[in-house]
Design a binder for these strands. Structure first.
Lengths: 225, 225
DNA sequence: GGCACGGTTCGGGCTGGGCCGAACCGTTCC
DNA sequence: GGAACGGTTCGGCCCAGCCCGAACCGTGCC
């Protein structure tokens, strides 16, 4: 069997796809959480997770009686994003709870290891208008941006990695790109660490704290609505 | 069904995957050619092609009693590449004919609309060492490269397109990146047009002509073995 | 020790879908 | 017109694989 079909097959099942999309929040989930999320029995989840792990898309870690899984790495996340955004269909809320959840996620959420939603797109726009990132046929960090990355975010890019310093990732609510790659990850990590944003609920949504509003305004001139 | 699983499902079948990988050469194939290539009956090929077209991965064009299909666009090609190269398995020749074919493809071939194989990787190295493209955490065309693109290749980048000017594409024989994106496409188009390379056989392999050897040496200092 | 709980394994039911052959349709060539 | 050919449609076969329930195992808590 061709490797293409094999890898695609891993993502061709609604249950496994739901797992992977949940894991796009970049965190580690337990098998039970994922089973409830995808609405299948634990036995089913266990089997499908094993497949995804064996296929190299997920990494697992056992702790006591829990099995934690997360995406294997940025390449896996990029692959899932690319597939999911190929045929863009905007998700429509089917009930009140889902509508609330989608609303929160549309405002601000994590996407693997970076920020997305209106917040993520606003940040991307800001770094471009401030000349930290050039949108010159594909994103690229400018010299000024490199300095900003070190000074404002305290980020040092390790030499010799293959991960791009900045990468554009299509936002499925905004239909516009936000920041991924090492820069996007650093920004998200800093924001979580310094409590500029806080996780809300169990999903991917985050909320901008008052300090965060201040910080984004000061750092990048972004007014968070 | 989630859009992710749906798109992945299109590529999760060996026959459809074989079609897509054949079409990665960037040309249009007839339904019959693809059927023979994938070793299935015409009826099967017809059905599967219809699915791929309906799913938006392939575009079709009817001419007389022929049905020509090709990849829908660079996004589709990038998606297939990404999926195929996620689990890297080097193809092993199974018989003499295949061995010859793989040898020719390893030397030089097309990959969707750009050049790959040892030739492709050599060209990528050349434009980087000549300062036409910067390999600075992701590829980027330098000002010098932009001038070269206009003067040597006569290429004018249309404003407002979302396609990156240059993009790196992992070579599955060399395991190193070659040039994709608009630059890679322009280089490949020029090479075919000016007969620097010629198609050999029915697959993706190309052969560098004597004039091509000269041109690559003169243009980029590349010595084609 | 006993119990609750998260996770896994196994057997079995069911369905989707991949494939083929046969019949059919339109084009091209003689 | 007739024959050859590329492609499509349809009916039917068959298997992969998705899911569940039941039984089981190890951990952690009382």
């Amino acid at each position: 069997m061709s490797p293409l079909a094999e890898t695609a097959g891993l993502l061709a099942d609604p249950t496994r796809a739901a797992f992977c999309q949940a894991l796009l929040d970049g965190r580690a989930w337990t098998a039970g959480e994922l089973a409830r999320h995808a609405d299948v029995r634990p036995s089913t989840a266990s089997e499908q997770l094993s497949r995804l792990v064996k296929g190299g898309l997920l990494a697992e870690e056992r702790q006591g009686r829990h099995r934690y899984v997360r995406l294997a790495g940025p390449e896996a996340a990029a692959l899932i994003e690319a597939l999911a955004s190929y045929a863009p269909g905007v998700p429509r809320p089917r009930n009140l709870r889902q509508s609330v959840r989608l609303g929160a996620e549309a405002r601000a959420r994590t996407c693997y290891d970076h920020l997305a939603g209106r917040l993520g797109v606003a940040l991307a726009d800001a770094v471009i208008t401030r000349g930290l990132v050039a949108d010159d046929c594909g994103l690229a960090v400018t010299p000024a941006g490199r300095a900003w990355l070190t000074e404002a975010l305290g980020y040092q890019h390790p030499a010799g990695t293959r991960r791009p310093l900045v990468r554009s990732c299509l936002d499925w609510t905004e239909r516009r790109p936000h920041l991924a790659g090492a820069l996007g990850a650093a920004l998200c990590a800093t924001a979580l660490e310094r409590q500029w944003v806080r996780r809300v609920g169990s999903g991917r949504a985050v909320k901008v704290t008052p300090e965060g509003g201040e910080a984004f305004r000061e750092l990048l001139g972004v007014e968070v609505g």
